[in-house]
Design a protein around this nucleic acid. Structure first.
Length: 948
RNA sequence: AGGACCAUAGCUCAGUUGGUUAGAGCGCCACGUUGACAUCGUGGAGGUCGGCGGUUCAAAUCCGCCUGGUCCUACCA
């Protein structure tokens, strides 16, 4: 073995081997366990959030596989409609100077497929680097033929049940991308804006109660004035009661619009009057509905002003008889230009009462960066109310459990307040809506054009055209768990692996994906999509900032694995930026944080870091220092294994079941191993990967390496040790290490496999050529091997060793100088303990001799330490530093005093004695006795030294 | 504005049903090249558990208020 751990030499090799040996596929034996990967964007690349999530899924999968489950981790990618389309549009613009419209729909779609073929492997290659044990033979893509079938089927069936309908409604419109987008794709950003207070003149000579011939309304979007259909006042508002039913003469437009009473108007806000623009505001739409207003749309799809308004009733029917006149001067103006112009014109008319500066939050499209406009368009919707009921029930009755539990509240909160879901997108890349129109605009929903004709008796002479729009990506990903298993066919996979066992996902998409999956899956399979939802936090940078390309703080997991030079990192972060002006600041921040670039750490260390940070919190501040630490941990494990192999290979390890003699250390480490196995299994059961990783770390480093390996040396290097003793120690060394490797494997697959291949033959668990740790049994704790006596004895031994080391450090005695040590007082068994552990003591504490002193009064002048109530004495007649020792003792006594004081206070409290459980009181009393005894011994020692 | 979550060592985080001498890793200080490992070893320093109040014999832990932070919803007249 190499002297240090070199991950790059083993990782890729092992992954290729596992994949070639088809180790990832379900075995077909055991209880089914399945995880469906949350599909990443096919043309995207792996970010830290993916890497984190994939680590958790792989750890679960490998663990369940080792436990003998029939395990499927199914992988796949998402077509990510808008993101992918934009990417390809930008690419053809750059390379060919063309738009998608220049190419036409079919040619453009071909381009997207080409790009998918070219770049689609990127993210799956990265997944492989992370060690993901996914069944590649079952890889799925949301645009696959089979999956598209499922999508169509769902659409058609929902439509048949009238749970999908088409309507003219307000949606979040992205004027740059020309499509509706979901709430998820809207980012609310706060900023400085203006609030314009306008005077709206009353028609017909009407006056307000205080004699004015106008009312004041305020708006942040003056351009929507053109589409106003009324002014609302609160029904309780005495100031305006007389105006209800009267009219306004809408400035600039001249339209007569009514004043209505509606509780949407808040008496406290502004003047208490609010303008109503049902076609351009979600709240106003509701108000308009209550008062039967028309919808007056004044925007084009580019959010410029129309020449003539488009007027519809609330059912979306055009109203050809209405007056659509708009002022000609605004026609064609961009909404923000129109805003300026309208403000200026109102001002010129003396109707601008005030311009107020306010902070307000505006919706932005997260892809385009454009301000989202509520716009009236024809869209397809899912009526979610009936779907939501069983979905709420499934979580309420425990069929689906969230981990951590508190996310269930978030789920319920959202589910209780559902809006119908707009599923159509004005894109080209995606699942085209299975609906056809004839020339009259009648719509036929079917699985194909043929079926549409058949079902509706339409002859070949009737021209049909398919809906131009595609479905929201979340619509198809809502079908992910069952659509990928072959539904609507009743496949064996569907039978075996659905419902899936666990969904691993971030809390940010609970609403958009998790909730919709639950609704759709219950509806179409009658089953929940998954039994458990493990919700993790968001990976942030070391400062707690969200990682984003525009902030220039993203880390590529692969760079943490392989390392990257500062230059390459700078290029990655500042090259090809959307906002080049930020490059300088980003470069500086990057130089400050990574002045020498990033070292290679290997996949296992990265995975272990993620797991150790997988706590129940919502933010995961990625910690480079911990990454370093866990790389070191890998090295520790590596070197411990080197030691074991050096001492075991070619030696008698008792593989054949030969007689052995187990030392105290052997019995102790075996006992500790059982506890660790139980601990790790429990932590995994509870999804506490931080606890699991810590338990492993602790056992490997602080018990196996720090103590057991050291304790094995006196046996192995002792020429007088019996054959059985040496065999016993070697057997324990290799068996415990072999178990460690199996425990580590789900978390650190590569290093555990690499070492296991060498260790397992020695441990007698080798299954022959071609065996892999991947399919070995998960270690089960054996209670009968827990040896509390051994634990106590080792604790005693450690106590003595630490006491001597402590004296050395405090007294400035060279670490290598052999010492003569005396033990005295203590318990009757302590003398025996000394006898049976002399060789361990001698080696680990570097003693010349260790002697039991029957009569404490015979003790020479010494530096002392307490181990329980036993004294460890290092005679120091010649070299004692009186002051140092007195100072040390004083400190110790002070510490004891503090403890004693605390307990005395407790015991002095009558209420405590009367009300606390007896066991608690007893415990305090025995602690008090212990501390007092210790203090007494220290004081005796202090007196002795002081008398010098 | 409403709601949720969070606040523990210099940093990143654990801390079960209230009873622990409040822990870990990293960092820091001192010492150390014995044959697994300097990606290491040994020893050590460092916390009034955000603040105030309450419940209790007992609070890091339960409750209330305050401060600070994050997120969601809403407002965006």
């Amino acid at each position: 073995m190499e002297k240090t751990y070199q991950p790059e030499q083993i990782e890729t090799r092992w992954y290729e081997r596992w994949e070639a040996d088809n180790r990832f596929a379900p075995t077909g034996r055991g209880k089914p366990f399945s995880i469906m990967i949350p599909p990443p964007n096919v043309t995207g690349s792996l970010h830290m959030g993916h890497a984190f999530q994939d680590t958790i899924m792989d750890t679960l999968t490998r663990w369940k596989r080792m436990q003998g489950n029939n395990t499927l981790w199914q992988v796949g990618t998402d077509h990510a409609g808008i993101a992918t389309q934009m990417l390809v549009e930008r690419k053809i613009a750059a390379e060919e100077g063309k738009t998608r419209h220049d190419l036409g729909r079919d040619a453009f779609i071909d381009k997207v497929w080409e790009w998918k073929e070219e770049s689609g492997g990127h993210i799956t290659r990265q997944l492989r680097r992370m060690g993901a044990s996914v069944d590649w033979s079952r890889e799925r893509f949301t645009m696959d033929e089979g999956f598209y079938k499922a999508v169509q089927e769902v659409f058609v069936r929902l439509h048949e049940e009238k749970l999908i309908y088409r309507g003219k409604r307000l949606v979040n419109w992205d004027p740059t991308l020309h499509t509706a987008i979901s709430d998820l794709e809207v980012e609310n950003r706060e900023q400085q804006g203006s609030f314009w207070h306008f005077r709206y003149p009353l028609a017909d000579g009407v006056k307000t109660a205080d004699g004015k011939d106008y009312v004041v309304v305020a708006t942040t979007r003056p351009e929507t004035l053109l589409g106003d259909t009324g002014v609302a006042v609160n029904p309780e508002d005495g100031r305006y009661a007389s105006l209800v039913g009267k009219f306004i003469e809408l400035p600039l437009v001249g339209r007569r619009i009514p004043i209505v009473a509606d509780e949407h108007a808040d008496m406290e806000k502004g003047s208490g009057c609010v303008k109503i623009t049902p076609a351009h505001d979600f709240n106003d739409y509701e108000v308009g509905k209550r008062h039967n207003h028309l919808l007056i749309n004044v925007f084009t799809k580019d959010a410029t002003i129309l020449e003539r308004a488009e007027i519809f009733d609330l059912k979306g029917q055009p109203q050809p008889d209405e007056d659509t006149t708009l002022p000609t001067k605004y026609a064609g103006l961009d909404r923000f230009e129109a805003r300026k112009q309208i403000v200026a014109d109102m001002d010129a008319l003396g109707l601008l009462e005030q311009e107020e500066s306010v902070n307000n939050t505006l919706p932005y499209g997260d892809r385009s960066g454009d301000v989202i406009e509520p716009l009236l368009t024809d869209q397809w919707f899912v009526a979610v109310e009936t779907l939501a009921k069983p979905a709420i029930e499934a979580v309420a009755n425990g069929s689906i459990q969230f981990v951590p539990r508190n996310y269930e509240n978030m789920y319920f909160a959202w589910m209780r307040d559902l809006q119908d879901w707009c599923i159509s997108r004005q894109l080209w890349w995606g699942h085209r809506i299975p609906a056809w129109y004839d020339v009259e605009g009648n719509v036929y929903v079917a699985r194909s054009e043929e079926e549409a004709r058949e079902n509706h008796g339409l002859g070949a002479d009737v021209a049909l055209t398919q809906d131009e729009d595609v479905l929201d990506t979340w619509f198809s990903s809502g079908l992910w768990t069952f659509g990928t298993l072959g539904w609507p066919e009743q496949t064996p996979e569907l039978e075996t692996f659905h419902p899936s066992s666990v969904l691993v996902t971030g809390f940010d998409i609970i609403f958009f994906w998790v909730a919709r999956m639950i609704m759709m899956t219950l509806k179409f399979t009658g089953e929940v999509p998954f039994k458990t939802v493990y919700v993790h936090g968001l990976v942030r940078d070391g400062q707690g900032q969200k990682m984003s390309k525009s902030k220039g703080n993203v880390l590529d997991p692969i760079d943490l694995i392989d390392g990257i030079s500062l230059e390459a990192l700078l290029e990655k972060r500042t090259g090809n930026m959307m906002q080049p002006q930020k490059a300088k600041a980003i470069a500086k921040a990057t130089r400050d944080e990574f002045k020498d670039g990033i070292e290679a750490h290997g996949t296992d260390a990265l995975r272990f870091t993620f797991l150790s940070q997988a706590t129940t919190g919502r933010d995961i501040k990625f910690d480079m220092n911990r990454l370093d630490g866990y790389r070191n941990f890998c090295n520790k494990l590596w070197n411990a294994s080197r030691y074991v192999l050096m001492n075991a290979e070619g030696e008698d390890c008792g593989t054949g079941g030969e007689e052995v003699e187990l030392s105290l250390a052997d019995r102790w480490i075996i006992s500790q191993l059982q506890k660790t196995e139980a601990q790790i299994t429990r932590a995994m059961d509870e999804y506490r990967f931080d606890h699991a990783s810590q338990a492993l770390y602790e056992f490997v480093w602080n018990e196996y390496c720090d103590w057991y390996l050291e304790l094995s040396k006196p046996v192995l290097w002792d020429v007088h040790a019996t054959l059985e003793a040496k065999r016993g120690t070697r057997r324990t060394l290799v068996r415990v290490l072999e178990a460690i490797l199996r425990l580590a494997h789900p978390m650190m697959p590569y290093i555990s496999e690499e070492i296991w291949q060498r260790v397992s033959p020695l441990a007698g668990t080798y299954m022959g050529e071609g065996a892999s740790i991947m399919h070995q049994a998960w270690p089960e704790a054996d209670e009968s091997k827990i040896d509390e006596q051994a634990t106590r004895d080792i604790e005693w031994l450690k106590g003595v060793i630490i006491a001597v080391r402590n004296i050395r450090a405090e007294m400035n005695i060279a670490p290598g100088k052999p010492l003569d040590v005396l033990l005295t007082k203590g318990q009757p068994e302590d003398a025996e303990r000394l006898e049976s552990n002399r060789r361990f003591l001698a080696k680990l504490a570097k003693l010349e001799s260790a002697t039991w002193l029957a009569n404490p009064d015979d003790a020479p002048l010494s530096a002392t330490q307490l181990v329980g109530d036993m004294e460890v004495l290092v005679p120091m007649a010649d070299l004692i530093d009186k002051d140092a020792e007195l100072a040390r003792l004083a400190k110790e006594i002070e510490k004891q005093d503090k403890l004693i004081g605390g307990i005395e206070k407790k015991l002095g409290n009558d209420g405590f004695i009367a009300k606390a459980p007896v066991a608690v009181v007893e415990k305090e009393r025995s602690k008090l006795a212990e501390f007092q005894a210790a203090k007494q011994l220290l004081e005796e020692q202090q007196a002795k030294i002081a008398a010098l």
